[in-house]
Each structure stands twice: as structure tokens, then as C-alpha cells.
Nucleic acid binder design. Structure first.
Lengths: 346, 346
DNA sequence: CTGTTAGCGCTTTCAG
DNA sequence: CTGAAAGCGCTAACAG
């Protein structure tokens, strides 16, 4: 039903090649240009990207695969990624893994079959097997926020271990000694943050009893449940470190519902500030990642990879442009969002 | 680089037609089936959806265009839409309008050019002009949450006016008389809710002074700013009705930062409960929409439309299946999330 | 600058 | 059940 290039030919008498050239920004005689513009608008012609993609073998589209689309963290990332991509003339195909490795693998295949030019993924899986179809198809992949256990990949993230380690100073400097942690242990990122926590405690010469170590899923209800348990302990901690947004959210809920007050009864240090610190009372201390910059860097790196892989196919070899073929890990810095959720234990 | 159907032919000696048939679930001789399975897995063959789409003229993909991807409301919708779609064998192409009508129009065209089979949109524009490319291309569109001013479209939403009107009972029954409203006036939905508010007030015989009517953008900072202004009024309202999630969020922030307490000094009634009522103290009274059901209905309706439009093209006419060609508006019910953010004014 | 001619990888008649 | 052949709508040489 929609108009094709041939309808335009019928209307203008020009050849498909000329029309195609015009559509792709080539030069045509002024009179022809006018004819073409007229025909295109009269026929409501729109390029069939499917057909174009088939021949050019590129779609000007990148796939973005996130572990959960309803996570505010991912929503924020997606916003920035989308903006960066749009400004560079790329479209974005978003897929939701729904926290499920199988769905993730399936979605990745979907993206590959859709012939996206590249893929950005915030993975749920912790090993690289699911990326195989992309590799086989020669589609560049850039990870964000989480890297994988078994292999190094292009990745944009923060130094999670270090960020956690440093953030712990806030608690330690305020003389806290009984510090608990609620962390996710399903992904690399969560584990790194946990390590940072442990190192800080060890360096401070403080013990971390088993009941202070809540390691589980990356989910609000896990944070909620864990905080509840911590508050019911006879030997209650004076402070709790929560290592991601969902967990922080859940923990805040638990405290709100309890009879304990923050920071009077319990001090809190969270991770990934997304409006939470602005809505919740008291204002939370939080480790914050530069989400916009991370997104932009990821897009930049991906597009570079796409560029490179095309050159390789074309056989071009600009000798003085030896971009590294090795995986690159871009490590961004973090900052601390100040609040008043930490009490000084004089 | 990726394997094609022809590589499989070379490996199996079968014709492309047979291979294609197999790929699409057709019957082949058992021995051939075995050969094909082997070849496919050895070559890591994956169907090229681009090529397939070119000939079948369908992509098994629906586009979803939301006004802002970082809005939790949309994130939640997207999650449910994605699940419904996946369960029906459809992929989802998400675009973010970034609250910008131009981006929206451009994204819609992007989706059309990508030849999605149908489009679900939670629009930022309030008139239907931007949908024209989809109509021209014969691509069905289903709106969600917001309908358009100038024309009726297939749409899944709640009765916003009525929901607001009814929710106001909560305030009125608690003897509130000085009630302010913070609402969005940019989209149809916001306006309807505002009307519902006004009607409730009028019916109760209560005046609404100009300074109690905060009509503006659908944004957290607007809610924040407006609430601040309301709290500074000499003639402070005793209750405030906030007509969407972002505004509610902002308003909650403003109250938190002020010296006023909810519900002691100010009662609050919000809209669209997304975790907010679980994190914030006091627990908010809120109007909640059945987001999962709305998403499922939207998908169902869209797929029905897609089905129908194909039949029309094929010329099929099953006489006893006269689905309406008229726009359908599906109106879902709402419920009230109880809380303790409303004070009884004895 | 313009036109002719091949395909891109797949599905789809239509014979066999 | 299988195969040969004709495109889907577009781009990309290569001549003119």
C-alpha cells in the first residue's frame, strides 16, 4: 500500500537510481529535485528501511538490552542512551530481559536477527555465553554497569569495589563499628561492591558477623526483608550499607515501617541516587554514578566499534588509525550524595 | 559474514525453498530434517528477519512510543506490554519521545519506516497529526492512557474525569473545604482529571480560588514548585489533590522539605501508585490504574487490528466476524490505594 | 548527472 | 515433498 521508489519513477520519469541517490543526499538537477520533492510529498513516500537495510547491511539502529525496564536505573540509562543515539542519527531498539537469563538470550538473538548495528547491554547473566550470536554475526557489543565473570568485554562502568570501599569511610569516620551490608550477589557488580565493603571493614579491623551479611537478589523485596531482619536482631547494627538502588529502596521501606528512626537508631548509606534522596526523609547518603556520562561513553565506544568493524569488512587500513582491537573497560568516577542519614557516634 | 540459507543449501544439497519451508515449520522428510538441524547448528544460522520482513511485509514487531522513558509510569507499562507481546511471539521496538512533540513525530516515522506491524503510543501531542504516517502506511495504532483532542482513536485508558471526581470524595468526606489541585494541562488526560476535580468541588458547593489551581506541566519539578507555593499561601489549603505520578512525587518532596507535616498540616491525595506509597511516610492515598490489565488490553486490541487489516488486504471476508472498524475506547476501572495522608477535619 | 543492471536473503507460487 | 524461478524495495557499481 505505501508508495515505493517505483511510484516515484512513474510520477517523475526519473530512474530508480537517481531517486535513490537523491534520497541519500546526492546531487540531482534542480528541476529534478523539485519534481522529486513534489512526488514524495504527494505520495507520502517514506523510505522502506527494511529494504534499505537488506542491501546496505546496516540499519542505523542499535539494540539496547536491559535487565529490567521497570528499574528506574535502567530507565534513566535508556533516556541518556536514546538521546546520544538520536543526536548521531541512530535509532534504538530496546529489549527487556525481565531479570531472566533465558529471556535475555532470546532477546539478544532477536536483536541480532533484526540486524542492529551494535548492542548495548546491561546484563542479567554473569557469563558471556548468551553473547555468542552477536559475536558470530560480527555485531559489536558494549556492556554497561555490569561486566561478566568469564571474559573481558568492552564495558563502561564504575570501579565498584573501590566506590564501595571509599563510601564506607562515611560510616567509619562517624565511628560506626557494627555495620551490616545488604547486597546483591547475582551479578559481578554486586559482588564487587560487597568486596569493597569487606575490605573496608577488614582494614578498619572490624568484624562482620554472619548475620550482618545479607547477600541475595538485586530486588526491592530482598532489601526490604533483609532490613527487617537486621532490625530484629538482638545485636542490632548501628549502620547499614545498601549496595544498589532497588535494595536501598526496599531497606528504606522497612525502616519506615518499623519503629526505628533513621539516623537516630540506624544509619543508612545507599547506592544509585534516583530521586530517592529527594523524596525520602531523612535525605539519604548515597553513592552516585555519572549515568549520563556513562551512557554517552557507551554510545561513543559502540559507534567506534561499529565503524571499525565496517572498515575491516571493507578491507580499509588507515595505518595511523590503529584503534585497539582489545576489549576496553572505561571506568568512570563516582561521587557521594550528601544527606543526613548517618549519625555520628560520639 | 553470518550464514545464509544458501550456505545451508551448499551443506545439505536441498533447495532454498525446502529450507525455507522447514524454517517456517513446514513438513520435510525426516532425513532432511536431521540434515537441516545439523547444518543450522553447525553454521550458527539465524534467520535474517530483515530479508524475511521484506517479502512477508510483516515484522512480528510492534512499536511502542512513550512520552518519556524515564517515567516510572511508562516503565511499568512497557514491562507489561513487553510481556504480553513476548507471550504472543512479538518483539517490541521502544521509542522515547523525550516529552517533545517533534521527537515524537520523528520517532513515529522511524517506527513506520521500520515496518512495525502496529504501534502503541502514550502520546505527548494532543492532536492526531503526528499519526498520519502510520495511517498512510496502514499501520494500526492503539493509544494508551491519553487520548487525543481532535479525533477518536483506538484507546485503552481509564475514565479520568470520573476517577478524579470520585477520588475527591475522600477529601470531601473528611470535611475538607479548602482544597487545592496540582495538575497537568498539557495532555487530554490531565485536563480531564482537572475537570473531575472542578466538578466535585462545584457539586459540593465549594469555591476554588485561583491560587488553588496549579495547572502546568506534567513534571516532578512542577509538582514540587507548586506545592511550595501552596504551602506559602496565607490562606493555606487543608488538602491538595495531585493528578499524576510525577506531580505527586514533586509535591511529596516539597512537603518533606517544608516544616509542614502530612497529614497534620496538609492532607494529600495522589495519582498513580508506583512504589511511592510504599516508601514514603505517611503512606499516600492514591488513585491507582490497573496498569497490567491496561497493557494487556492494549496489546490484545492492537493485535486484533493487525489481524483485521491483513484480512482486508487479503480480501478475506468472514461474514460472521464483523469486527468493528470504528475506533474503540476501552475504559478500565480504577481503585483507591488507602493510606493515612488525609486528616479528618472534625 | 542519469540510467541500466545486478543483487541483498528470504518467501512463494507453481510444476514436478 | 521438493525445486526452479520470480520477486519484496532498495542500493551500488558501472556505463553513458
Amino acid at each position: 500500500m505505501p508508495a515505493t521508489i517505483r511510484d516515484i519513477r512513474a510520477r517523475t520519469g526519473l530512474s530508480v537510481a537517481t531517486i535513490s541517490k537523491y534520497l541519500n543526499g546526492g546531487n540531482v538537477l534542480p528541476e529534478n529535485r523539485v519534481k522529486l520533492q513534489a512526488a514524495i510529498s504527494e505520495l507520502h513516500y517514506e523510505v522502506n528501511e527494511i529494504a534499505r537495510g537488506l542491501v546496505t547491511n546496516k540499519t542505523k539502529t542499535v539494540g539496547v538490552l536491559v535487565y529490567s525496564i521497570e528499574s528506574l536505573f535502567n530507565g534513566t540509562l535508556l533516556k541518556y542512551i536514546g538521546e546520544a543515539l538520536r543526536s548521531l542519527g541512530y535509532g534504538m531498539l530496546i529489549c527487556d530481559s525481565s531479570e531472566d537469563e533465558e529471556v535475555e538470550a532470546q532477546s539478544l538473538r532477536f536483536l541480532v536477527n533484526k540486524k542492529v548495528d551494535g548492542i548495548i547491554v546491561v546484563p542479567v547473566a554473569d557469563h558471556s555465553a548468551f553473547l555468542k550470536p552477536a559475536r558470530d554475526a560480527g555485531i559489536p557489543v558494549v556492556l554497561m554497569d555490569r561486566s561478566l565473570m568469564d571474559e573481558e568485554h568492552d564495558c563502561v562502568k564504575i570501579d565498584n569495589r573501590m566506590a564501595a570501599f571509599r563510601a564506607m569511610r562515611l560510616l567509619l569516620d562517624n565511628r560506626h563499628e557494627k555495620i551490616a551490608v545488604i547486597c546483591s550477589q547475582v551479578e559481578y557488580t554486586g559482588i564487587q561492591r560487597y568486596k569493597g565493603f569487606l575490605e573496608a571493614m577488614e582494614q578498619a579491623g572490624l568484624p562482620v558477623p554472619a548475620e550482618y551479611r545479607k547477600c541475595g537478589r538485586h530486588a526491592m523485596d530482598f532489601g526490604y526483608q533483609s532490613m527487617k531482619e537486621l532490625l530484629e536482631l538482638n545485636n542490632r547494627p548501628t549502620a547499614v550499607f545498601m549496595t544498589n538502588y532497588e535494595i536501598t529502596l526496599g531497606a528504606v521501606m522497612a525502616v519506615k515501617e518499623s519503629s526505628f528512626r533513621c539516623p537516630e537508631d540506624i544509619s543508612m548509606l545507599g547506592f544509585d541516587d534516583l530521586i530517592l534522596s529527594k523524596v525520602v526523609d531523612p535525605k539519604m547518603y548515597m553513592v552516585v554514578q555519572p549515568m549520563r556520562e556513562m551512557s554517552e561513553k557507551a554510545v561513543e565506544l559502540l559507534l567506534e566499534r561499529i565503524e571499525n568493524s565496517r572498515e575491516k569488512k571493507t578491507g580499509e587500513k588507515k595505518f595511523n588509525e590503529k584503534k585497539s582491537e582489545m576489549p576496553v573497560e572505561i571506568i568512570m568516577g563516582t561521587r557521594i550524595q550528601e544527606g543526613n542519614s548517618i549519625r555520628f557516634l560520639g
